[in-house]
Structure formats: C-alpha cells, structure tokens
Write a protein that binds this DNA or RNA. Structure first.
Lengths: 168, 168
DNA sequence: GACAATTTGGATAAGCAATGTCCGCATTGA
DNA sequence: TCAATGCGGACATTGCTTATCCAAATTGTC
C-alpha cells in the first residue's frame, strides 16, 4: 500500500506554483519542465486537480493553470483524496465469504477509525503551512551556509549511494 | 490506495481459528473451505503469517497451523504490516525530481505522522478484542431474537430471505 | 476571420504489483 | 514405507497505475 506517484507529483507541482505568487498562469509545459516529467502525464494530473477545484484552468492562447483557492484552503488531504479516492481503505467485501463471526464489525470499525485519524492529520496541514516552513528553512540554510540541494547532475545509475544518510 | 485482499483474508482466517479454541491444528484445506477460497492461495497467505510469527506450522502428517501467540498479542496492525509492508506510505522519491522547494519535508513529516497515527489505532485492537465483541453481539442477537438491522418502511414482501445467517 | 497557443477528453499502450495456480520437495506421524 | 501436510519456486492472470499520443475545443492576437 502506497500513495501514488500522482499524489506526490501533484503536491510538488502545486508547491512549485505556490512558490511563485507573482505568476498568474502556468502552462503544463512549464511545470512539467520544472518537475522533469512529461507534459502528457502532468496534463492528466492537472485535469484531475481541476475537477476537484484545487486548480483553475484557462483555455486557449495565453491560457494555463492557477490555484483554485487560497493556499491556506488547500490541505494535503484535499490533494491526496483526488488521487487515492475516498472509498474506505478496508473494504470488508473483497471476497464474498460470509462474515461467519458476525462482528468482524469491530475490525471494520477499527480500520475506519484509523483511516479517519490519518485524514485528520493530513487535513491539518495546508500548502500555506508548507510554503511557510520552506521560507523558514531557507533562512536557516542561508544563515548556516549549507546547501540542502545537491548539484543538478543528471544521475543515471549508481545513485542512492548514501542510503544511510538520513540520520535524523 | 487500499488494504490488500490478503490482509482481509488473513484477518478472517485468523478469526476463524480464534473462534475455535478447542481445535489445535487447522489444515489449509479446512480454513480455505470455510473462507471459500482456494487452498493454493490461502497457503501463500499462511506462509507469510508464519514468517511473521503470527502463525505456527506443524509439518508432516497430522500437521497444520495454529496461532503463534495468545490472541491478545496479535493486533490488527501486526497482521496489516505483514501484507502491506512497513515502508512509508509516502516515499518522497517517486520521481528523481530535485526537491526544489527544499522543505517539502513538512509534507513528508505530515504523511509520516498520519501513517503513525493510523498504526496507533490498529495496534490498539487485538484479535481477542474482536472475538470478545463477537461474543457480546451474539448474545445480544440471541436475547433479542433479531439481527441488529432497523426494519425499513413497511416492507411486506419477502426479500433477501436468508439474510440473518450470521448466527453461527 | 485566420492562426497559434493552450486545455480537454478519449483511446491505448507499457509496466508493475497483487492475485491466483501448479508442481516437486521436505517433513512427519502412523 | 506410505500418506498427509506444509514449503518454496516458477508461472499465469488480472487490474491499476503510469505514460503517451492525437483530435477536438477554446481563446487571445494579428
């Protein structure tokens, strides 16, 4: 079980737009280039975000995409739901077996509760929060002079060398 | 995103065994028949549960499977982890894009926290809890002589005949 | 009105993990 | 030894995610 890559791509793309409030409309091409993804695929992702109201679209020449609401009203949960769906994570009817014990219900209730708690956490963090912390960390980085970004070398293979690096 | 059917099958099968404490060893055939699943597939599920210590296996003639520990020490989380894996739901590296904003970290931290809360809920409920509630509900049903289903509005036709079958 | 830039939606392929089956081997009690 | 059972590997099937392409619709600009 994993969050889809579409979810991650959507978050990254939205943050890209959020970090550039001076621009009003972003073309798929532009964002796709920034995220190093094909425009074809990003277009599909954006279409879903438009349907969900997270993005607005302007068609035609000079068209493009813009955020559909203020940053503070777009939570991580909003984005996740778009790509992961809203049906329960635990279905209780994967097979047509009779629920012989009857109250497997406690099982179902527990999984539902777990999912609810998860969404609760995601709903508490908006894109604005993320951008705000981004600013803070950027300031910290500048003050301490260590860059968290490796140089954009096109790593083809033999990557993920220092996998023990996450010591935090 | 969904919990796999293996997880659900595992839970149902374990509950089947838990509800029959008089029996010591269950063959795959027996449980598979009860769950209306092929023995081939259930065998694979059981093998994973053995590896995780949730089940014990006895090979050879008269062999079979038994619970690996007391019911109270088998939580829903234990079972879920077997089939869903323990790697984070949000990976942060689905694509090789540079994390241009730097602290997408807040995103990652939030998803990790959400997942942690989810596991917290699942870890609080053991198979013993489930069986216990099963007993309670069975008693309630027996006392009231009806399934806990609110009667719909003046339905006189004989629909869904055998729906009270959960009284095993 | 023509043209170019752009999103939209459908069709469809490619990839991959979950699901499901089969078979030979290993183990164990009778 | 024999039969019953679990073990492990190989493989087929299925469905969802990822990804691409193309024609159509929309809209600003000349």
């Amino acid at each position: 079980m994993r969050y889809s890559q579409s979810t991650e791509l959507a978050i990254d793309s939205l943050l890209y737009m959020a970090a550039r409030p001076e621009a009003s409309d972003f073309s798929v091409e532009q964002v796709a280039a920034a995220q190093e993804v094909s425009a074809s695929y990003l277009a599909k992702v954006f279409q879903q975000l438009v349907k969900a109201g997270v993005l607005r679209s302007h068609r035609g020449s000079k068209g493009g995409y813009a955020l559909g609401r203020p940053l503070s009203l777009i939570t991580l949960r909003d984005i996740a739901v778009v790509f992961e769906g809203s049906s329960p994570l635990y279905e209780c009817d994967g097979y047509a077996r009779t629920c012989s014990l009857g109250p497997k219900c406690l099982v179902k209730a527990t999984f539902d509760e777990a999912e609810r708690k998860m969404h609760e956490v995601l709903a508490k963090v908006s894109l604005q929060d993320v951008v705000a912390q981004a600013g803070q960390e950027a300031a910290w980085t500048a003050a301490h002079g260590c860059a968290p970004l490796p140089p954009p070398v096109a790593v083809t293979q033999a990557d993920s060398v220092g996998q023990g690096g996450a010591t935090s």
